[in-house]
Measured scan of single mutants.
Amino acid sequence: MALNTPQITPTKKITVRAIGEELPRGDYQRCPQCDMLFSLPEINSHQSAYCPRCQAKIRDGRDWSLTRLAAMAFTMLLLMPFAWGEPLLHIWLLGIRIDANVMQGIWQMTKQGDAITGSMVFFCVIGAPLILVTSIAYLWFGNRLGMNLRPVLLMLERLKEWVMLDIYLVGIGVASIKVQDYAHIQAGVGLFSFVALVILTTVTLSHLNVEELWERFYPQRPATRRDEKLRVCLGCHFTGYPDQRGRCPRCHIPLRLRRRHSLQKCWAALLASIVLLLPANLLPISIIYLNGGRQEDTILSGIMSLASSNIAVAGIVFIASILVPFTKVIVMFTLLLSIHFKCQQGLRTRILLLRMVTWIGRWSMLDLFVISLTMSLINRDQILAFTMGPAAFYFGAAVILTILAVEWLDSRLLWDAHESGNARFDD
């Protein structure tokens, strides 16, 4: 018995066209964080690309023209004298008006014999932002004059995390709450300039795509075929072959399989920071003279006294001054041990922890910024005066060393310790 099946006739004509040209192939790229070699397709503007294995951002879609970056830099340069030299806060102490600005706080630190601690604050609040705007201006002028731009481009990517104007702005709020127990506070004209400078700096850093600047100024022929001998440069993120001198053909720094002496430098910085954190938390970090009496505060006791007036601000200072430094030390110690013992479990967790400490590390400088600003506000000789204690130097040095330890660690070593050939990683 035959089955009668109805015929289905399409209502619209289906047209099949042959592909007349070869589909576009992607360029081969190595991930600078996990060293995976993959094919990167062509990316349009405002599109980002991520590593298929570790999800690290390979290409950032946010990109401004150099002219727009230069305009932002010149605007920031105009704001800087007002943000640093004009009063941020006014207080009335014992019937006398006192003005506080950024430069005055750094000068008070240096004047009291601790120039190293003052230079830490100076670099993060004044030096690094000033280098940022002058570097962008150098790129703008240098591109037109045919100057060598490689050193500036190499420095810009590392400079971003040292620009800490946003953290200093939080420190202004913390210092205001600490001082309000002794005097009446009012915002100064410099505060508005400083807030504007923070906003412009944040926007500029978020749109400063150094890798795209490398592509514009020093374009290189990408690798179009897969080759395990391809290496990625950690300076400019170019994937290719080393030249005859073993250097990256684009930025001219040595092109090595792994960062040289990464573990040794990381261990040295980490152990030194552990040693410095002990006096930083045991010795007094601030000293207040009130009517001839002397009151010393460690980091913890200062947080407890701050909690009596504002528990939320005390929580912020606790996280930045105690929780973050010790968390960074514990995480980095764990990561280094996992590399030495070739741990194969929990790779995803370790990668996330490394990215976390990379982002939060700079916030530990908050305590030094609060001390710097408070020193310029309260300084009335023996009637009422505020000065920093010996722990300030140890704390600042420990924070900087932990930042350097994270920067010096080559994250690809975590993958080397893991089993080879993993296309995915999980716990």
Rank of each mutant, 00 (worst) to 15 (best):
Q112W: 04
E212I: 15
W267N: 07
F192C: 09
N379H: 02
T117G: 03
V125A: 09
I253E: 13
L89V: 14
L368G: 04
D99W: 12
V275Y: 04
D114L: 07
Y138M: 03
G389V: 00
T9S: 14
D227L: 15
P52A: 07
R259L: 11
F123V: 02
P151C: 03
L79W: 14
T75D: 15
L404K: 04
P254R: 15
D114Y: 08
P249Y: 05
M375D: 00
Y394H: 09
M103S: 04
D381S: 03
K57R: 04
L130M: 15
D181G: 04
E215R: 14
P222H: 07
L257C: 08
R245P: 07
L208F: 11
V152H: 01
P129T: 07
P129A: 09
D114E: 13
S338K: 11
M76N: 04
G190L: 02
L132G: 04
L278Y: 05
A269V: 04
V102T: 09
V189W: 10
G118K: 10
F393M: 10
A18S: 11
F326I: 08
N148R: 04
Q186M: 12
A314V: 12
A417I: 09
I253L: 06
W107D: 15
I400V: 07
S286E: 00
A269F: 02
P87F: 10
Q264A: 01
L335G: 11
Q295V: 09
P284W: 07
W267Q: 06
L130D: 01
E296D: 05
E215I: 13
A56Y: 11
A272Q: 01
L169K: 03
E86S: 14
N148E: 06
Q295F: 06
Q220I: 08
G302I: 09
L270N: 10
F333V: 11
M304V: 04
L78I: 02
S376H: 06
W408K: 04
G421Y: 05
A417H: 10
D381W: 12
R362W: 01
F74T: 11
G293I: 11
V329D: 13
M164T: 05
H207L: 11
H237R: 05
R258I: 04
V170L: 09
V232Q: 13
F341T: 11
C248Q: 00
P222W: 08
G235D: 03
H46R: 08
D410Q: 00
D166H: 15
K160F: 07
R144E: 12
M80S: 10
L149D: 01
R17H: 07
P24F: 08
F194V: 10
L413M: 10
I403S: 04
R256T: 12
M365H: 04
T202N: 15
L335Y: 05
G421D: 14
M356A: 13
T202K: 15
L323V: 12
A307F: 11
V357I: 09
G113R: 03
G171P: 00
T117H: 02
L145G: 01
